[in-house]
Design a protein around this nucleic acid. Structure first.
Lengths: 119, 119
DNA sequence: TATAGCAGTATACTAAAGTATAGCGGCTAA
DNA sequence: TTAGCCGCTATACTTTAGTATACTGCTATA
């Protein structure tokens, strides 16, 4: 079964596919993951930098979400033992490929809005 | 600015794009929207049919999510005044195009899993 | 007349997600 | 020495999401 026929054959869609799809969705769930990924798409950043880039996020949520993203192989955390220590967050190779997914989502969102003008 | 350059230029990304992206994400948020869309991708279905197709969903949640999807132009609800009345739910044209988005998400999920074997 | 299916709604609850506010330990520059 | 930045953690709270269970009005069938 080829990828581009997934939908037409989803009745026979293997569990693997369900898991993979869920993985992708989990990358975006919650209020803060998309902004975090968004801000890291252009540059690696330090904790406080990210905080400044995302108005209203509390350090608690930022910390929690960064850990979550790290566990799921989306963000890489590097501690430099300079004095004082600095910590840098960046996207993994895999996560940088999310660009294509986001483009597709954007495309759908735009056409959907166009079809539902005045909604 | 072309769609495929969204990510490279997202610093200058217009508010429209943020909204559109959010629209797409909202189509999938929560525990039940993806299963509901999934089951409607192949056929229009009636309320109880959907319920049977999605184990463990309560009528309260199904009702709530269907309303939500209807408001957002994803699902179309048709009441046939046969006796007794029957109600059919189907995806809108727009929603059927979600196939392409799901394929992209699946693709990313699969490659991400491959890269993170043993995760 | 009783039972069952359809398409839900009502009420009450639990669990998960997110917020607010404070503080800590290590460092540095004034 | 004290004020402030960095990278967080702790505690308590509110809000939103989801569950459990019961019930409604309508109709068809046994």
């Amino acid at each position: 079964m080829r990828k581009d026929t997934f939908l037409k054959n989803a009745k026979s869609c293997p569990a693997q596919y369900v898991l993979a799809l869920n993985d992708t969705l989990n990358v975006f769930t919650g209020k803060w993951k998309l902004p975090i990924i968004g801000t890291l798409l252009f540059d690696k950043k330090r904790f406080t930098e990210i905080q400044k880039n995302i108005p209203k996020i509390t350090p608690r949520m930022l910390s929690k979400e960064l850990k979550d993203l790290e566990i799921n192989g989306v963000v890489k955390r590097t501690v430099y033992d300079s004095i004082p220590v600095s910590v840098e967050y960046e996207l993994t190779d895999s996560a940088r490929l999310l660009g294509g997914v986001l483009d597709k989502m954007l495309e759908w969102g735009l056409q959907h809005r166009k079809k539902n003008i005045g909604e």
